[in-house]
């Protein structure tokens, strides 16, 4: 698991543009790495959730109570 994460990071790093942060707070390296790993998946879930919500709203614009 650890090795996979390392390989993943290196692969991603090869196509990366370095970013700098001007905020005064120390984000914490471990926290930043974790966020980068986890947020991509969460973004996907979120996007799907939003599409599903929009789909539901289109077929049932008012509050619903029954199953499809």
């Amino acid at each position: 698991m650890l090795q996979l994460r390392h390989i993943l990071l290196i692969l991603i790093a090869l196509i990366v543009i370095p970013q700098s942060v001007s905020a005064y707070l120390d984000p914490g390296v471990g926290s930043m790495i974790w966020q980068l790993l986890v947020a991509v998946g969460l973004g996907l879930v979120f996007t799907l959730k939003m599409y599903w919500q929009k789909l539901k709203d289109r077929f049932r614009p008012s509050a619903d109570g029954h199953e499809e």
Partner: peptide
Amino acid sequence: HAKSQAKHADTHETIERPKLAKNALLGLLD
């Protein structure tokens, strides 16, 4: 999150970071 912090506690080089899409941030917040 805690495990990642512990693992990288000794990382002192500036790491190259991939971009994080705004949607990913919204997903994180959600």
